[in-house]
Design a protein around this nucleic acid. Structure first.
Lengths: 240, 240
DNA sequence: AATTGAAACTGGTATAGACAACTATAAGGG
DNA sequence: CCCTTATAGTTGTCTATACCAGTTTCAATT
């Protein structure tokens, strides 16, 4: 069953074996799995090795331990709608709405102070500034401006921006977004926003500023979005 | 320095020692910390014990290992305000602000329709309704109403609510919150809210509704909060 | 001067055992 | 019947050691 010596670490094989058993329904959430001593005997490995396998699974949230009682299968994790959320398009898709957008402007400019500091740019750092209106079910939902450093994306074009920029990022440039930070606040719409969104002046709007980072922690994009408060609700799931 | 025998586990003391050194600037992000063998000699513990300490810190994202090279201090994590965020008090603490609150009302009532459905209550389900004004740096920041099912907390009192309810939950009732969902929207303040928060009528406010769940997926609490938009910004970190 | 190669490091995996702390259960005593 | 007490089972902590698999360094060789 489990192979000693070379191929993969024993603790890894034990992990895979246990995951398989759980997925096959041998254990249900809340069930106790065999004790560490029992497993170590069954697999003919030392208890510390079993512990390494179990510890990894505990860290992954698959199992949990209770001192003196045993080790148990955790409840299935709920999916996080936010996970991987990067674009308006994906957001609307998750909500079951059609989406489209209209490009208002596409410029290269010297980065404004706040943007430059968030993107870790020097004074001479140029950025693309892409301004769009976002529609959901053909109704204006948000107005959004993205700032991207020219140094990271020397060949960005309007066409790429109009298509799926994140696919371009991943597949062509092999860049991956690892995390992001969002700041969300309520505001009264200014004149420009109320015009773009066709809402009354000074209506409340939801303003979201997101800064996305690549795997190597390099900041990659700052997006400032303003959503109609009457049509949009931000949803966030928290684990733990 | 480190105490053998009883008090706290050795690996825990080693963790604390290393964290302290990092915070004191003995190591900067990217620096290599002493090798496991060196640490085990310095602390007079076995290498496996050092490994447990280091592994925990790696799992926490404080350190990272490179086989054959060493163990290094990770870039400062952007703190995740959301992780484990359950209460206004914790939120303000993370922001470095003092917080206090004034209890406006503490009632037991039949759950309103929307609350009952979110808490999975039958028609006859009673809930506590706890209404508070939340202050940060002595200034009104938010008005907040919590709804908790009486069935889960038969002995809730004003005192408990005024103290740390989450400690009571964890330590006395042994209940733990595993996840929550928040819905965030912008609104214009209604009269009651603008009075409580001492802001102009119809000023924009950030409205947050959070539903928290226990480990066993039982919904435990619905909180409706209204924050002053001029003082409060919601911050959210996304992984992956 | 450039290349090779051995040695001395690093973390990664694994063993076989020991005792502590905690929990559940069953046996015995009031 | 309830309460205490032993006992066996669990995870938690820790030791001392061994070998494997990468990386770096530096001296010897070419």
């Amino acid at each position: 069953m489990l192979k000693k010596n070379h191929p993969l670490p024993m603790y890894y094989q034990i992990e895979e074996f246990l995951k398989l058993e759980i997925n096959e329904g041998a254990f249900h959430p809340g069930d106790m799995i065999p004790s560490e001593r029992e497993l170590s005997e069954r697999f003919q490995v030392s208890r510390m090795t079993v512990r390494q396998a179990v510890s990894n699974m505990v860290n992954d949230g698959i199992l949990y331990r209770e001192k003196g009682r045993g080790t148990f299968v955790a409840e299935k994790k709920i999916e996080q709608p936010l996970k991987g959320l990067t674009s308006f398009t994906e957001d609307m898709k998750l909500r079951g709405m059609s989406s489209s957008s209209r490009l208002l402007s596409f410029d290269v400019m010297q980065a404004p102070q706040d943007i430059a500091s968030k993107l870790n740019l020097e004074d001479d750092g140029d950025v693309y500034a892409v301004k769009r209106i976002r529609f959901a079910e053909k109704q204006a939902m948000a107005v959004e401006t993205s700032f991207l450093p020219v140094s990271l994306l020397p060949d960005l074009t309007e066409e790429i921006v109009h298509g799926s920029m994140y696919e371009y990022l991943e597949n062509v440039l092999d860049l991956r977004i690892s995390h992001a930070r969002q700041e969300i606040e309520a505001r009264a719409a200014d004149e420009k926003e109320s015009e773009d969104l066709q809402i009354e002046a000074h209506s409340p709007v939801l303003h979201i500023e997101r800064c996305s980072y690549l795997d190597n922690r390099v900041p990659f994009e700052v997006v400032k979005s303003t959503y109609r408060a009457d049509r949009y609700k931000f949803i966030s799931d928290i684990e733990r």
